[in-house]
Design a protein around this nucleic acid. Structure first.
Lengths: 250, 250
DNA sequence: CGTTTCATTGATTAGTCTCAACGAAGGTGG
DNA sequence: CCACCTTCGTTGAGACTAATCAATGAAACG
């Protein structure tokens, strides 16, 4: 486990890098003023670092400003399940702020820039800006919606469909925050991550990805996966895509 | 699909049947006054009825007052995944209130009594009673936490462990709202529901349940499953149980 | 009393896991 | 700069898990 490094650039909310994404709902000046005070600075963690750890109480919650990460849980004997991925705009650690302790861990896949909030200030946010409280509920509900789809996939899709769904899903999410280039996307993960997401062994994952690659939909490259054709992935997985609606962020 | 029947008994919030459960956090008189106005009456649906349907927009959200139900999603070819079960105190349909339309369905396993709220009033709730907004976020976060565990189970536990986990999980939830009698519990479901929860075929589910029954932890009875010994189930599934904390309800 | 739903069982097939081995690439230290 | 080491991807063989097919029994339902 790599440790968390010291804060780097200091963003101001008025300069928040997230405000430029068309699919994210921007804040009113009042809200920006409040959030500038509510936030606690930002944090850069390196790839592989653990941001939040299962079983611990965290004094903070975070919004991802840039980079890729994932949430996961493990059984006592080490079997690991990746629950979901985190991308720019996502709020992480809310659970630890509401309940007593975190029930899952969060790890960085790439260098991750985080906007830091103190959990004790959360009730004040609900009091002062109910609209922001509503936004947080919205984000929690969206996370649940994504989990529902992932669970459907792991429970009921075949290995090939599951893999196709995963990359279509990640492509769509990445596109909504401007991470695609020329309709292509490079996702920084290992086959082990894919295996732990799909609930498959690493060997079978490799064979499944190989088969999927013959469709031309994706290609495995040095330390990552390049998505080439999302329409093929959507067809194979029989996935319609998530409704693309403007979403809030904090 | 059975239809929804007409309202039955009219509860007042001051007489809410949920207030007697020790694990549920009761409301202040102010909140009760607000909720009495916010709520829209109640509704009784019969076993097998569909309460909310995937793809539809619902004008309502509900709190379960009594009974069992489940949330589920299906692929276009009919493969179904049960996402989670709903028990007294659970809020359902929040997603449909925040997003445009429901992304999952909810069906009754037993007769279900529901407290009905209008979705348009939700922003007003956040404005007037931030504490209740916070509670709703808490409930959404708890749902996510349960889904995380279920996903870990479906992705990484063996069939036998998965089945044991499911019944241990449902037992613990049912106990928290007083549904157990003499440390036993009857859950009103079919093996098909178990199969669709665990991501297994009905035949293999039957064989797995047979094996699990030999441990003495449960017994399949007429139209349901009787849980006899949760400690055995927890041992087989290597599950520690969820932290039992007081939780809010609306 | 027939009809439907649900649980059960055995046989066969398909999918996935484990074990094992190897190659390529990158990083590290001498 | 090279040798070594580690990580990651790849491949094949064999074992095991779970799916499918098919048939039957038991109970509830109308």
């Amino acid at each position: 486990m790599k440790s968390i490094s010291a804060p780097a650039t200091k963003y101001l909310c008025a300069n928040c890098p997230l405000q430029f994404h068309r699919q994210l709902q921007n804040h009113t000046p009042d809200e920006i003023a409040f959030l500038s005070d509510f936030r606690n600075g930002d944090l850069v963690v390196e790839a592989g670092a653990t941001v939040l750890v299962e079983g611990a109480t965290s004094a903070h919650l975070f919004t991802v400003l840039s980079g890729w990460g994932f949430r996961h849980k493990t059984l006592e004997d080490g079997r690991r399940q990746i629950l979901n991925y985190v991308l720019p705009g996502d709020l992480i650690g809310l659970q630890g702020s509401l309940m007593t302790e975190m029930q899952h861990s969060v790890e960085a896949l790439s260098p991750l820039t985080l906007c830091v909030f103190r959990r004790d200030n959360l009730p004040k946010l609900f009091q002062s800006f109910p609209s922001l409280g509503y936004d947080i509920t919205w984000l929690a509900s969206r996370e649940e919606q994504m989990l529902d789809e992932i669970l459907l996939s792991v429970g009921r899709r075949t290995a090939l469909e599951r893999a196709a769904y995963l990359f279509a899903f990640l492509y769509q999410r990445a596109r909504s925050v401007g991470l695609t280039r020329d309709d292509r996307l490079v996702i920084p993960l290992r086959q082990q991550h894919v295996a732990d997401t799909l609930g498959l062994s690493i060997v079978h994952t490799n064979k499944t990805l190989k088969k999927l690659a013959t469709s031309g939909a994706l290609r495995w490259i040095d330390r990552g996966c390049e998505v080439l054709d999302i329409s093929v992935l959507m067809a194979i997985s029989k996935w319609q895509g998530l409704p693309e609606v403007a979403r809030p962020y904090i």
